[in-house]
């Protein structure tokens, strides 16, 4: 089973040279720590920055420089700053190629739910609906099951939808799964020590298994 950092580490392998990337709050933010140094990529923060750098040292903290998770950050050389309308123009316009975000549920046809639990939790969708409606590649980082043991990989999302047919890949603590164009979670990799049977038993949606499913490897 993977911890949050390992999920982030595994997702970082999906990053390709030259991409502009938006990382959501939570596990997705951790992905930045594992992007190989030999890749030139640019991280976008939807509150108006291209070129997110590492967290600042104590003496470089600037309240006017935060990421979408409201964390203090720094800018890399070559960064640019812009307003929120411009930021979402580059998102909707398809200029941000990869979006990595968290989810409460993902369905076998790529629907995602991550913004609301009716009657319980109403935080809002933030930029998630704009991001999932537009990015060509969307990867979800989440736990395979909820805290009370229910599968989060479903036939159909039960919670209010954030976007339809948009998720391409899901990386959980148990597995890497691809959403097939015709529907279904194709099992690509298992977390170390996790069996296909366990993944099957914890996946409510249609799981597609072809041949031997390799264990994930970490460099």
């Amino acid at each position: 089973m993977l911890n949050k950092n390992q999920i982030a580490q595994r997702i970082a392998k999906e990053v390709k040279n030259g991409q502009y990337i938006n990382l959501g709050i939570g596990i997705p933010t951790l992905v930045a720590n594992y992007i190989p140094d030999n890749l030139d990529v640019v991280l976008q923060s939807e509150n108006g920055l291209l070129g997110i750098g590492p967290f600042p040292t104590e003496d470089l903290i600037d309240p006017d420089l935060i990421n979408a998770g409201k964390q203090t950050i720094t800018m890399l050389k070559g960064s640019s700053l812009f307003n929120s309308a411009e930021s979402f123009a580059m998102i909707r316009g398809g200029h941000v190629q990869l979006t990595i975000l968290g989810a409460m549920e993902v369905s076998e046809n790529g629907d995602i739910a991550n913004w609301k639990i009716p009657g319980k939790m109403v935080k809002g969708m933030g930029g998630a609906m704009d991001l999932v409606a537009s990015a060509e590649n969307i990867i979800v980082a989440m736990q395979h099951c909820s805290k009370d043991g229910q599968s989060k990989l479903l036939k159909k999302c039960a919670l209010p939808i954030t976007g339809l047919r948009c998720v391409k890949k899901v990386v959980t603590d148990l597995a890497v799964l691809e959403i097939l164009p015709e529907g279904g979670f194709k099992l690509l990799e298992r977390a170390p020590g996790v069996s296909v049977e366990e993944i099957q038993s914890k996946t409510e949606g249609r799981l597609v298994i072809e041949g031997e499913v390799p264990e994930m490897t970490f460099d």
Binding site: P54, T57, E58, I61, T72
Partner: peptide, 10 residues
Amino acid sequence: IEQRTVTGER
């Protein structure tokens, strides 16, 4: 500041 996040040494 809502989330004061820092890295490394001063």
